[in-house]
Design a binder for these strands. Structure first.
Lengths: 182, 182
DNA sequence: GCTTCGAACTTTACTGTTGAAGTCTTCAGA
DNA sequence: TCTGAAGACTTCAACAGTAAAGTTCGAAGC
């Protein structure tokens, strides 16, 4: 039997051909954009996951560190706010912070000016890991885009943000599931 | 205190500004592409999730149905193969199939010509749900891309597949985590 | 100054995924 | 034909996430 060695993942073109076979009124151009976008995102996450694993942290932990650093000095955020930014439930955030405190990546203390609130901060170690992860990520991203000219990168970014604006207008709520990498 | 109403999710531009503030040697053009891609993907998943929920199935279940239909007639795949295509472990696949059999979306039987193997097939109901989901998804995708001209869509698809080729060459293995939507 | 409401976080119970161990079947060699 | 090895799936224990109930503190009304 030739042709289906491991039969694992069909190529993008094979997949689009299959879609057209099974669902006639499909615009292959649209499908190509959507499918490529999705696959690309997945592959990128795999790559990020490998890189953060080298640093001994998970992708999930990296996201928390990112949110804290991007918040700006003094790099403090409450669990609820973190949860919103990462698209998690508060309960999940509590658990994730538990683990990260245990690993020494972040600190957790009560806000003495309002004892209902909790303040999560980043430790030196956490900041160091974030920085390392950023270095690796930017190298990877530069490699990823190496085939695109400066002008193409600009056009690509512009088109993607145009699409993004379209979805965000359509679903202004939630922000849902920010758990990704950006 | 003005300016930070709910402090939930920073806009894309705010986020990129924060990156530049905290990590100088960052190419904002690259970061814009990467961040927009990631956010867009997330938003799309939220949208798909809402649509499949209307049909009474989960996104996870939709993925299984997609894989089966895309496999082509007779729409049969083994759990192991499905797991590879969806980027799950075989164990997770077993459980997911359990649930879907219980819900009448797929069938599971032993391959009598090789009793180690199991054959998962799609039911009429499963195929119907897949079709409905496809109809909704294509409407959504068309709306998403409505601001792009035909020529722009072509360029966008081409650039994305070029990036995809680049990552796939770099990590030919795994295919990792296919769990997404494409 | 109590009381009640609401906000912010945590706890609890449950769901879905993973990794590792286990079962069953096939196939190749003695 | 028996035995051993490999493959395909399942089972089990541990972990991360969600939803809903619970806790604690602060603030607004009476």
């Amino acid at each position: 039997m030739a042709d289906t060695p491991g039969a694992s993942e069909p190529s993008l073109d094979e997949q689009i051909a299959a879609y057209q076979r099974e669902f006639q009124d499909l615009d292959p151009q649209v499908e190509k954009v959507v499918s490529a976008l999705s696959r690309l995102n997945r592959r990128m996450h795999v790559a990020y996951g490998r890189q953060t694993a080298e640093l001994g942290i998970s992708n999930a932990e990296w996201e928390v560190l990112k949110a804290l650093v991007l918040a700006g000095a003094p790099y403090h955020l409450g669990p609820g706010d973190l949860a919103k930014r990462l698209g998690l439930t508060p309960a999940a955030m509590t658990h994730r912070i538990d683990r990260m405190v245990a690993e020494g990546l972040v600190t957790r203390e009560r806000d003495e000016s309002n004892r209902v609130r909790v303040i999560v901060g980043i430790t030196e170690e956490g900041r160091g890991k974030w920085l390392e992860a950023m270095r690796m990520a930017t190298v990877f991203e530069e490699e990823l885009l190496q085939d695109l000219s400066g002008e193409e990168r600009g056009r690509l970014g512009e088109m993607l943000t145009r699409l993004l604006r379209r979805v965000e207008d359509a679903q202004p709520d939630a922000g849902g599931r920010l758990s990704d990498l950006d």
